[in-house]
Amino acid sequence: MNIIKRGFALYSALILTVSLAFAGNNKLVMDGSTTVGPIAKAFAEYYMQQNKDVNITVSESGSGNGAKSLINKACDIANMSRFMKGKEFKAAADKGIMPVAHVVAMDGLPILVHPSNPVDKLTVDQVRDIYLGKITNWKQLGGPDKKIIKISRDTNSGTYETFNKLVMKKQKIAGDCEYVGSNGAIRQRVQSTSSAIGYAGLGFVDKTVKALSVNDVFPSAKTVASGKYPIARPLYMFTNGYPKLGTHLHGFMTLHLSPRGQEIVESIGFIPVTQY
């Protein structure tokens, strides 16, 4: 009897939560970059936990499509790993949309080598020359006489996009560069290959690999957030005008300023914009 009662109570509680989640009709739709996607998802999960009456959907279709769907009023928030282009602003203004940028996090890419590698610092130009195939041996950089093994993220990833834009200046990477499918795989390859070079999100640096100083700046949360580290970029969420105060949209868009929001940003390997 007791068990049945308890089960019934549990069941009704479940029904209540589910119906509350849907009844509120507080829906937030997010679309856009695959790089910002993890932040959006983690924020959405946390926000829905705190506010049971909100339903947030996150799709990842690329920054360009995020901008497109904000302009077409198909989403409330456009996640973008780059700033909106002039053309997109114009199209938005024509449709009566006023895009407002919120920088939710910073993204930095440390250059990684094997811990036994004596090379400590490189310049952005040197890194580019390595990936272009102009520098092929560590000897040319003051290291041992070993062929450099270049490792890159696959061309689909936002990490690759950042690297391609900030380091390669959109020049084509040499054909003998190896491609792997995740940040973790980059670290795995670099820690097991003494002559490898790679790049990954700041959250993936640990003792098994060595991060290099680039242009004499060592990558850390501080240097990335302050913009001193050269391979870094802000990550944006765009809304139509500044969200009306007190709405769930406003609550969601200020989440990244709260201590908990910053913790979430850090826990998935990005750098919060404010220090807490």
Binding site: G62, N156, D176, Y179
Partner: peptide, 21 residues
């Protein structure tokens, strides 16, 4: 002993979401 790239891996790795649209 050189790294290579195959058709299947290219299809799997390059199937980007943005390009479907």
């Amino acid at each position: 002993l050189d790294p290579v790239r195959t058709l299947t891996a290219t299809i799997a790795g390059d199937m980007g979401e943005a390009d479907h649209v």
